[in-house]
Design a protein around this nucleic acid. Structure first.
Lengths: 191, 191, 191, 191
DNA sequence: TACTAACCGAGACGGTACGTCCTGTCTTTTC
DNA sequence: GAAAAGACAGGACGTACCGTCTCGGTTAGTA
């Protein structure tokens, strides 16, 4: 069994972490990503700056952790893959159409792309949905659909437009997009 | 007809602008977007800071203008739409697989999304290719392909994956992606 | 003999000078010496900055010229020297007790002490009164008063307190000071 | 009794203050008051600009504090008041005849006259000598001299000429001035 | 009457310094 | 011995003026 380490001194307080994340979320929603500074979080949460630096290497990491609220159960049941994909995309679009969507994009873009933290964030927030989508596509193929030449590319075609619209802003993230994406994706799977 | 305005006072020097942009490009390539500060450009280009602020409202705008080098002729001839789309995507991928690609993404993400400057940048750098793609798709439809339900979504599925891969980093921007995207896009157009 | 130079071309406009000085005076009274910048005078007077620099080498010189309104007839008649000195000091105190007094002191302190302009300003604004005082003292001596060992020091003792109070601010420039100074000065002249 | 305040956090470092003041003094002596900028002191002392602003509100305040070196014991013993006054003025003249004298005058003239800092500076640097002079005059009166009508004015006549000469520059601050001032001052006290 | 030199306004230029904000580190006191 | 408070060195921000320069457009005097 793992033995209890000596652990001398005052233990890190989970409350401090929680209060810092709450303050960060409030600042993100109220003032935006550009105003989420360590200084501001320290002032708003009552924590000291060195304490925050003990938990996160910089403001981007803090922001990323604050932006992971809950993975909005990326794919649930075992119904018709086409229906489920449309439902998942619909949930994603609703989640990203808010301010948070743009902030997640910003955090993703500005963070050190090679950091462990960034990788974890991408996996949890972005790629989890993509993996759920892969499962749905594979189920469709098992049900008789034609396998695409390159499923990776197909997955990127399904989930990429979301970020494209957020970045380029040429079209809004409207609810109908979920069905359009699903239709076109399944059009490539025709037997 | 539009009459020439009076234009009193010393006119802005195009050389200063050009030197600032050249310095900005060098810093972008050497140090990255995060190091492109007005101060650094002033020091490197020999321009004064107020002069730079006379031309650009902030470092993001300067960066965006520096990143517009030349629109790499988004779509040229009048050959087979499918071949041309693959060629265009191939050029785009080559252009974005470099450091510049990530920097363009970063600039796009961090700039004020509503600024006139940002809009112009998006139109010239991002959406020009998308519009060229639209022309190719429409030509394919005229040639007998099945029109998709929603051509806007199809275009986003073609050009979105590029930015998705840059942001999420789960797959490299490899040359084969151009053909995969083309194949899947045209799979939705089958008659 | 000095011949009149050819003087071709448009002559400098005295109106521009006058408007600049008027604007400078207004700024001095409204905002104080620290706000009297060439830029502000140019904006307020409608003159161009180079035009102002053609007339004055810097803002201090402009300020000094603006502060010379009229030499307040330093000493007039030929009455009793003691009475006349008190009257002159009284006029001086009234003139310096206003904002202008402090501004003159400031201009004097901050200007290049060796510049020709500064010298002229000191002679006209400060030392003219001192010279008038010297004439009064000499008249008193001619009338039978005891000549002091060092008339230069005596003159400085009469006119120095004015600036001392402006600088140190320990006592206001009150009207009674004129008589006190006169009394003490003449106390050194007793036969 | 006054209790020690809690004083949490890292206390201001006296060394930083001292280094800043030393750098300021060097700049004042080398380049003059006009070159004493916060930026220059930061660069020369190794301190950060925000640190300097934590200690002084602006460059004038820093200059004033740097110019207070030591009050050159304004009046010492209990000898003959006349002799002591001459000695004190002689010390003052020596101290002010240097560059520092003009700089003190400049600082005094350009600083916000109502600031707490300015008041303290005037009291320590200028008025301390004047108060010492008052004590000497009062002793002379106790010894049998005739009290002047207005001792405040007399004091200003003793100490004002110093600044008058610095400002107007019509006469140098020569050593003989001390004796001349003393003689004339005591000439007003004859019984 | 036409030429032309000097002035005029406007305003961009390279600079310096401002005073503020935030970074990431450090030091001190408190818990 | 970690948390909190806060000072520290440093770097960049965006602004205000500096004093210089280049423009197009008057406005004289002379040619």
């Amino acid at each position: 069994m793992s033995q209890a380490p000596p652990r001398r001194g005052r233990p890190p307080s989970p409350e401090t972490r929680a209060r810092a994340l709450a303050a960060a979320r409030e600042i993100l929603l109220r003032d935006g990503f550009g105003r989420l500074t360590i200084e501001a979080v320290a002032a708003a949460s009552g924590a000291g700056k060195p304490t925050l630096y003990r938990h996160w290497a910089n403001a981007q990491e803090l922001a990323m952790e604050a932006l992971i609220v809950e993975a909005p159960d990326p794919a649930a049941g075992r119904g018709d893959p086409r229906t489920e994909l449309a439902a998942q995309l619909s949930r994603l679009i609703r989640a990203f159409a808010t301010t948070r969507g743009r902030q997640i994009t910003l955090a993703l873009a500005s963070a050190d792309p090679d950091s462990e933290f960034t990788r974890a964030f991408r996996n949890r927030v972005i790629l989890a949905s993509r993996e759920a989508g892969r499962a749905l596509i594979l189920r469709a193929i098992q049900n008789g659909a034609q396998a695409p030449d390159d499923i990776e590319t197909l997955l990127d075609m399904i989930y990429g437009p979301l970020f494209f619209r957020l970045l380029a802003g040429h079209q809004p993230l409207e609810p109908g997009l979920a069905q359009s994406l699903t239709n076109l994706a399944f059009a490539t799977l025709r037997p």
